[in-house]
Write a protein that binds this DNA or RNA. Structure first.
Length: 301
DNA sequence: GCCTTATGCTCAC
DNA sequence: TGAGCCTAAGGCT
């Protein structure tokens, strides 16, 4: 269940593991991915990421497009290939690093990040195989189709894009800013956690019409998003609270219950003012906000 | 075990 | 606006 931070993280790891190498690709015949043969044993040139989309570039107008959707995820490992356990699993592996025909390896989901101390972490260049399950899309795209995607998506904080288009797209609309933040044509890669947390950190009401939000506030949100999302790439964990705002004042990796200001904290007191955090569906997803810190009147013209 | 929920998105109405 | 996609985890009983 990824936002842009995880997608870019996978792109970086899979680049380190597979780019410039001959990659084996397979998928069960029962899966929806029929084209594994077109990529199997081909040289992977590079891996792209934009917003929540991944593109594995095999050259010759063959880009394996992966979108994880709500449920998709990767498992990764070293050495022996994990056994297939379901119909929809698609596997990529380094032709040179993985020996087949040995005892099946054990697929330990997320073994490399199971503890905050990094126990079990696999250095990206040591990854020999990845297994993909449950993606919304896994299909071979042409460069033209990828270009269409880039045209549609808004700027991506993790791709060095400037905030100008983000600011313009929001200030032109009367739609609540909390809904616009989820729109991938406004900003690519921001999802439900970052929406809630970025708005809180800016003390901005999610209900403020886009046109009423000062450009300086939006530019500040963009500037805030970049390091926050980069941090989420490192440890695959979204942390948005500042140590001084945590009840324990703990620095470094925070407790689970003090990693966010508002996301999934409805019914609990605001970490800053004690007001009860509220929730409501906006843009089809559960929005969380502090009605006091993010009062509508905070949004100035 | 069962039920709910989830960092996403598309399509039909 | 709601259903559907599809998978796993967590909180219950």
């Amino acid at each position: 269940m990824p936002e842009g931070n995880e997608i870019h993280r996978w792109a970086a790891r899979h680049t380190a593991a597979f780019a410039g190498k001959k990659v084996r690709v397979d998928a069960p015949t029962s899966s929806r991915f029929e084209d594994a043969d077109r990529l199997d044993n081909k040289l992977l040139l590079n891996v792209r990421a934009v917003g929540k989309h991944l593109g594995y570039n095999f050259g010759k107008d063959r880009i394996l497009h992966v979108h994880l959707g709500m449920y998709g995820d990767f498992t990764e490992g070293t050495g022996e290939l994990a056994p297939e356990k379901g119909a929809l699993r698609i596997r990529l592996w380094n032709a040179a690093a993985v020996k087949l025909g040995t005892q099946p390896g054990e697929s330990k989901r997320h073994a490399w990040y199971s503890n905050d101390d990094g126990t079990g972490h696999i250095a990206p260049e040591k990854v020999a195989w990845v297994e993909l399950r449950g993606p919304t899309d896994c299909s071979i795209w042409t460069e033209a189709k990828w270009a269409t995607l880039l045209e549609r998506l808004g700027p991506d904080p993790l791709n060095g894009d400037k905030p100008l288009r983000f600011v313009e797209k929001i200030t032109k609309r009367k739609t609540p800013v909390g809904a616009l933040m989820m729109d991938q044509t406004v900003a690519a890669g921001i999802g439900n956690i970052y929406r809630a947390e970025l708005l809180f950190r800016a003390r901005l009401s999610p209900f403020a019409a886009g046109s009423t939000v000062p450009a300086t506030t939006l530019a500040a949100i963009w500037k805030d998003a970049i390091p926050l999302m980069k941090a989420g790439m490192v440890d695959r964990r979204i942390v948005t609270t500042k140590p001084k705002d945590r009840p324990t004042k703990k620095t470094g990796a925070p407790l689970k219950e003090e990693a966010h200001y508002v996301y999934r904290r409805h019914g609990k007191p605001c970490l800053l003012c004690g007001t009860t955090i509220l929730t409501k569906i906006m843009a089809g997803r559960n929005l969380f906000w502090c009605p006091s810190c993010q009062a509508a009147e905070n949004a100035k013209d």
